[in-house]
């Protein structure tokens, strides 16, 4: 890492100050050096270490770091449970993001209409954000338990959803070792997750809506656009960057989700609610398959990186301009 303090300084600075300034630049770097070292070790160093474990034969109580190539990864891609995890993650992510976006935007548009008691409503939708996924999981586990909770009311309407105990996969096309489709049980988890996270997209959209100058809407109205057109043609395009941000933040939460599912359903029968985070935890810390667990972790990291790295690079550029 080369250290090249920027040389352009204020024109009026005296030579003595100039000298101290260059010393200060060194000090500035020293200020952040501990953090850089910590991140270098704890993030990048440990990821490399995990990567190494994922290529090793360490699948028992005793560390065995002999190199086995991609064996652990090959095992996973032929593994029923991991295939089911990929399916569940895919549909959980899609459903979760869609619901959070639509509900959040809908609520934000409503709350932006100079509603009386806006702050009360806003707080009702936002407060779950302050809760832990564990609390959410514990509570929704009870509400959506087929023999307790909301079903007591739904029974009276003749409905008997199985919620997270359902084992059906719709439509359930054979694919690899698993049935491909939306696992019904995951919907229960999506409900809980949406309940918790909608506040985030609501707050983002609300901030975005408030930043759109009223003149823009007025101009469109004068051009003869009705309210719906004003929204689709003027406001929504303005909200695009926010939508992208929300999608990316929600996607990375969803791809690494662990605590909500661990607290609410566990892997589920036939692994209908299992996700890589839970599998990694169980196989590593309960089954002692460290190599397999590390491989799952690396795959999770790659999935997240696909979303995050372009986002980070683009916001770095955005920050500079």
């Amino acid at each position: 890492m080369t250290l090249q303090p920027e040389t352009k300084t204020h024109p009026t600075i005296k030579p003595k100050t100039k000298k101290r300034l260059s010393k200060d630049r060194w000090l500035a770097f020293l200020f952040i050096l501990p953090s850089i070292i910590l991140i270098a070790i704890f993030v990048y160093g440990f990821i490399a270490w995990t990567g190494y474990v994922s290529l090793s034969n360490w699948n028992s109580l005793v560390p065995d770091l002999s190199f086995v190539g991609l064996k652990n990864y090959l095992f996973l891609f032929h593994d029923f449970r991991f295939q089911a995890d990929l399916r569940n993650t895919l549909f959980f992510t899609i459903l979760f993001i869609l619901c959070v976006l639509i509900l959040g935007l809908f609520l934000a548009v409503l709350l932006d209409r100079k509603i009386r008691g806006e702050s009360v409503f806003r707080n009702i939708f936002l407060f779950p954000m302050a809760l832990s996924f564990i609390v959410t999981g514990v509570v929704w586990q009870w509400i959506l338990n087929p023999s307790t909770g909301v079903n007591l009311i739904l029974h009276k309407l003749g409905l008997k959803p199985m919620w997270y105990t359902s084992v059906s996969v719709i439509p359930g096309v054979e694919w690899g070792k698993i049935q491909f489709g939306i696992p019904v049980a995951i919907i229960a988890v999506v409900i809980a997750a949406v309940w918790q996270m909608t506040g985030f997209s609501l707050a983002m959209y609300l901030a975005g809506l408030r930043a759109i100058p009223e003149e823009l809407r007025e101009a469109a109205r004068i051009d003869g656009a009705n309210e719906f057109q004003v929204f689709t043609k003027v406001i929504f395009p303005q909200l695009m960057p926010i939508t992208v941000s929300v999608i990316i933040i929600m996607a990375h939460i969803s791809l690494k989700i662990f605590d909500l599912i661990y607290a609410m359903t566990g892997p589920g029968a036939n692994f209908v609610t299992d996700v890589p985070g839970v599998y990694m935890y169980e196989t590593t810390f309960r089954g002692n398959f460290y190599g397999n667990g590390a491989a799952i972790a690396i795959i999770m990291l790659l999935f997240v990186a696909i979303f995050i790295v372009p986002y980070l690079i683009s916001s770095r550029k955005g920050g500079e301009s």
Binding site: N59, R81, V167, A269, N270, F289
Partner: peptide, 19 residues
């Protein structure tokens, strides 16, 4: 049997009970 084998059987069991 070792924990590793048991883990595999437990996973297989979870699938078998449903499928």
């Amino acid at each position: 049997a070792p924990e590793g084998f048991l883990t595999k059987v437990n996973n297989a069991m979870n699938i078998f009970v449903t499928q």
